[in-house]
Write a protein that binds this DNA or RNA. Structure first.
Lengths: 187, 187
DNA sequence: GTCTATACTTTGATAGAC
DNA sequence: GTCTATCAAAGTATAGAC
């Protein structure tokens, strides 16, 4: 009977390595060594590296969903929730060893539109845009789509230069988001 | 007698391929085939792939300097120049086949801080921040550094999701920048 | 029977020799 | 310019431990 948590252990190890070094830079052998499992076990749970990468990305997509759920719970109004999203994204973007948005990075590492890893990420971004627009429509903003797209732009920018400029960038982004939400919902 | 423009031809080919497919995804052989040069010629002009990548990045840095120069010429006031920067960045970010900011992408592809390709890009981003702050200080903004960082955030966000959302994203980013500059220089 | 460990094959890369 | 050395990676097969 197969150990039920083997898959989870492997995926956890791979996630850590992929996040830190990028997908291309991490070999299957490295994951096996780090995880302490046999090669057979890994390939019994993930048929190929592509499969493992897709599982890694799905986990990161789930993380985003959790981030949205947290933001919804942490803030009372939809307007405050939009700001909270930026705050929570900033925490991730400036975490020690952070290397930008894992999903965005994977799109860069797999430019081919037909590649499964590319598709998972691209689908995610389309969904996020919709999510933010729905949230913005629940505010009093006269042009909610515009507000949502601006928040998304801030989040994307934060992920991109957070790892370089650090926590100051995160704080500045939150203040920026507050101003943007305030301006959009004023009057 | 060595052909003087051989280096240029090779670098041009490499630039096109690196931009489109990413550095890791392009082999030296691919560059040689595409360029029609011999392997010896390439390695006589660039000692290693790293050297070629660094030359590619320096070219992209020069491109940014040109973009800044163009923006300075195209717009009259420093405030308008900041907006113009966003507009010109948007053109690049949403060009057909664009894949985000080449310099940012290379940081992702070479996470090692000691890697020459990483260093060229990281130095560039520090410089850009300084550049924008100097430009913002020439406006009437009460807090020019904050304005500059916000414009930078918009540019970074635009490069990140321009390739996915297209020209609408570029137009929205320009309007966003206009609003931000207007708000910062008002009063 | 499930896992670990290792040897092997194939492929594709950089780089250098001639 | 072709040919080759070297190396690393993905994936497969095999041998052995509990």
């Amino acid at each position: 009977m197969p150990t039920p948590d083997a898959r989870e252990r492997i995926l956890e190890t791979a996630t850590r390595l992929f996040d830190r070094h990028g997908v291309h830079a991490v070999g299957m052998q490295e994951i096996i060594d780090e995880c302490g499992c046999g090669k057979n076990l890994l390939y019994s749970r993930f048929a190929s590296k592509d499969d493992l990468v897709v599982a890694y990305l799905r986990r990161r997509v789930e993380d985003w969903e959790q981030l949205v759920a947290d933001a919804r719970e942490a803030a009372g109004t939809p307007a405050a929730q939009l700001v909270e999203l930026v705050r929570e994204a900033g925490v991730r973007a400036t975490a020690p060893g952070a290397r930008g948005c894992p999903l965005r990075n994977t799109v860069v590492e797999f430019p081919g539109r037909e590649h499964p890893a590319h598709r998972v990420s691209a689908d995610h971004f389309a969904r996020v845009r919709t999510q933010l627009r729905e949230l913005a429509r629940a505010t009093s903003a006269a042009e909610p789509d515009r507000l949502a797209d601006r928040i998304l732009l801030i989040i994307d920018g934060l992920y991109a230069h957070g790892p370089i400029f650090g926590e100051d960038a995160a704080k500045a982004a939150v203040e920026f988001a507050e101003d943007v939400v305030r301006a959009a919902t004023a009057g």
